[in-house]
Design a protein around this nucleic acid. Structure first.
Lengths: 244, 244
DNA sequence: GCGACTTTGTGAAGGCGCGCACAAGCGACC
DNA sequence: GGTCGCTTGTGCGCGCCTTCACAAAGTCGC
């Protein structure tokens, strides 16, 4: 279940943090904007218009403006947005103005890929530990982090005040990993295993299934192929005009 | 305008394949259902109700029924759905009734993780090659596949009639990878690099950014923390902390 | 064969997000 | 200081998705 705070309480809350509930769709785009804006900053671009940012992110300009407006009005009419300030605001809104401690469960290929993934440390995520239940993988260093036994998880989570856990295990071990993470005190989980894990109320889980993404692609590819085939058929006998 | 086949023409077209356009939201859920149904099949469950499937997938039962109804009406009132037939129908709809050839560009940690990922071959995706531009990585076997030089990409794509490409390179190499994939004849791309790649019209790109997922989580975690802090403040002095 | 019960399939309503279009606001230039 | 041009911020309509609620349709027991 999505833990969504009511609109009522939001309005009563501090206008500085989370002045309004930001739509999920916008939250999903903010990281994209952030990344593009940081790139602009590196190219010493101090100012950017919604049109330019929209082109970079391949979305509608009005959408960009509306998205940014949820964080308050930081643009200057006739000029655009100050890139540095925008970066600051988005970081703050996403909670990237301080470091997040993360643990990874599963030291297989995916766990290794994740622990070595530069995008995490760049964004302020600190990998506090990689854990596995397989003795053969213990003590091997992956991505600069030594792999520890899963039994040490509660200790590390408590000591480093870890709030985010990543599940990078096979499907069969995912539920156990989730249980251990929750028991240790983690409150948010990113699940890469292709199963639905059950967690107590109040714990949020976000699932990313690599094969699901591939299946969505093949659905569209499938349609493309059949559409082309039907088009050829239509051109052949000239009976039906399929597309409007 | 959205290239959407009208209901009229759809009824005139083949009723077997793509009788209507399936909403994106539904397409994204079908792989989840499929996976759960296959699990049920392994547990020798022959029949399932929309309620049960909804509970497993953690969604609304009416949504399940509507999703399934897009593929035609395969349920029996008073009984439920035949699991095996449902699996067959979803597979067919997603284009999983035949094998898909896939190539992976980038033999780093992520590329290795992907090429070794069991979920792909299980679903009928065949990794036809892993490619890299770094000579040090060439000829190393990862996940049962030998890494080849990127220059061999067009040849493999043509020979094995590959239509799906996966980008698992660093951000800096992603655009080049995309260009090469498109030039070789790939029509769908799954992009794991944290950049927006530009492709010609007609090529579809689906982006999965691991750090974006983490940022969405930390946004919610952030909200959870501030909400809790504000709740404590309210409980403490009995009035809402009004910074307005 | 009939009635009670179960579950599907779908019409309808509500909500959310997208994008258009335009007023409001800001800077620049004369 | 006024005018002009540019860009933001947002009200509004539209369409998609979700959810409710219920009729239709099937099973089961007798």
């Amino acid at each position: 279940m999505k833990a969504r705070t009511s609109d009522l309480s939001c309005k009563a809350m501090s206008p500085h943090r989370s002045r309004r509930r930001i739509p999920d769709a916008t939250v999903a785009r903010l990281p994209i904007y952030l990344q593009l804006l940081i790139e602009q900053l590196e190219n010493e671009v101090a100012n950017i218009s919604s049109d330019e940012l929209a082109a970079l992110a391949a979305v509608n300009a009005a959408k960009v403006r509306k998205d940014l407006s949820y964080m308050g009005s930081y643009g200057t009419r006739g000029v655009g947005y100050d890139v540095e300030y925008l970066v600051y605001q988005i970081r703050r809104e996403l909670g990237l103005d301080h470091e997040w401690s993360v643990v990874i469960v599963g030291a297989g290929h995916l766990g290794q890929a994740l622990s070595g993934y530069g995008g995490f440390s760049e964004r302020g995520y600190s990998i506090e530990g990689v854990f596995d239940i397989d003795d053969k993988k213990i003590d091997v260093a992956v991505g600069g982090v030594r792999v520890r036994h899963l039994d040490e998880l509660p200790q590390v989570v408590a000591q480093r005040s870890v709030s985010i856990g990543v599940i990078a295990t096979p499907a069969s071990a995912a539920q156990d990993a989730a249980d251990r993470l929750v028991k240790s005190g983690v409150t948010s989980i990113l699940n890469f295993a292709p199963v639905v894990v059950n967690v107590p109320f109040g714990i949020s889980v976000r699932r990313v299934d690599l094969s699901v993404e591939l299946q969505i692609i093949s659905y569209h590819e499938q349609r493309r192929l059949t559409a082309a085939a039907q088009l050829r058929a239509v051109n052949g006998d000239g009976s039906i005009n399929a597309t409007a």
